[in-house]
């Protein structure tokens, strides 16, 4: 078990014949990912990386059985690509593209909301994210595969390289991961922390969760409320941007602190109150998780002992 992706996932890569799409598709294939289709309008009928290319997502679903989309389409066309996948019946859509206008995403969310009401709901991850990986099974994204290790810690994060840093520290401590989900740093996005935490809480193979947030918005505060009310599994959290100057955009559009909402202090306070283990120094993430999980009975909740044993097996 894992969430969102497993070895049975059949991927369609939108923009596979482009430079980025091509490069990363190759790496996903090398990781053992099952890419069944590439989508490039006008190149249907050809093959790329020895995979059939289709003009439309509908064809990829009908003829190749694609059920998951990985999107590398440039920003002006990416929102349309997400909607094409959703309308074609793809269930999990992972949008890597960085720089999609926020109002395009507002329109996408509205459209997906309508599909949900019609009983045709889809799961969107991203945009502006590194993707999703279930170590040892499927890598759908731009993360380096080798830093991961199959195991039982779920990771959810708003940032790319920051996630790699956390994953690497866990792997170095011999703590493997069930699934690593990059939800992206844009102000309007698909899955949020709470959506992913719900899946991890329900996943048999996940015993603890590492959550990596950053300043801006209120997603971490919402996550804290969910952790307090529903999570039985231990949660470890880090929030980047403690020293960021207010009002400036630090790479991620989401990371703008305006007024008192979305500050580092408010996020940390909420997470601590919810019982999450907040790691102040990013470099201590791996050892903090290891110390807690490897010491039975030390965890916040009853499942701690069980967690520790499974965590050790990694």
């Amino acid at each position: 078990m894992s969430i969102l992706l497993n070895k049975r996932s059949k991927l369609a890569v939108h923009g596979m014949t482009g430079a980025q799409g091509s490069f990363h598709s190759q790496l996903c294939l090398e990781y053992g990912c099952n890419i069944v289709a590439g989508i490039t309008p006008g190149k249907g009928g050809t093959r790329h990386l020895n995979i059939p290319v289709f003009n439309t997502v509908k064809e990829a679903v009908r003829e190749a059985g694609a059920d998951t989309s990985l999107i590398f389409v440039p920003p002006p066309f990416a929102a349309d690509s997400i909607l094409e996948a959703a309308e074609a019946g793809i269930k999990v859509i992972i949008a890597i593209t960085e720089g999609i206008p926020v109002l395009d995403m507002v329109r996408v969310k509205k459209h997906l909301g309508r599909l949900e009401l019609e009983g045709r709901g889809v799961t969107l991850i991203g945009p502006n994210c590194p993707g999703v990986i279930t170590p040892g099974e499927c890598k759908a994204g731009i993360m380096p595969g080798y830093i991961h290790k199959k195991g039982h810690i779920g990771i959810v994060s708003r940032s790319g390289t920051l996630t790699y840093e956390a994953v690497w520290q866990l792997t170095s401590q011999d703590l493997g991961q069930s699934t690593v989900v990059g939800i992206g740093g844009d102000p309007v996005q698909g899955m949020n922390f709470v959506d992913v935490l719900k899946l991890f809480e329900a996943d048999k193979d996940t015993t603890a969760v590492v959550m990596i947030g950053e300043i801006g918005g209120s997603a971490e505060e919402d996550a804290a409320r969910f952790i307090k009310a529903r999570m039985t599994k231990p949660v470890f959290a880090f929030v980047a941007g403690k020293t960021a100057p207010p009002g400036r955009r630090m790479g991620h559009a989401g990371a703008i602190v305006e007024g008192a909402s979305g500050t580092h202090a408010s996020k940390i306070a909420a997470l601590e109150k919810a019982g999450a283990t907040v790691v102040e120094n990013l470099s201590h993430m791996g050892e903090t998780v290891a110390a807690k999980l490897k010491a039975p009975g030390q965890s916040r909740k009853k499942q701690g002992g069980e967690t520790a044993k499974r965590g050790n097996k990694g």
Binding site: R158, T161, E214, A240, K242, T243, A244, M250, N281
Partner: peptide, 21 residues
């Protein structure tokens, strides 16, 4: 630094170490 999130976390770490970016 490479990556916005890691860059922010690097500034935070510098601060924790007693300096400022």
């Amino acid at each position: 630094v490479n990556g916005a999130g890691l860059a922010m976390a690097t500034l935070d770490t510098v601060k924790l170490a007693g300096g400022s970016a």
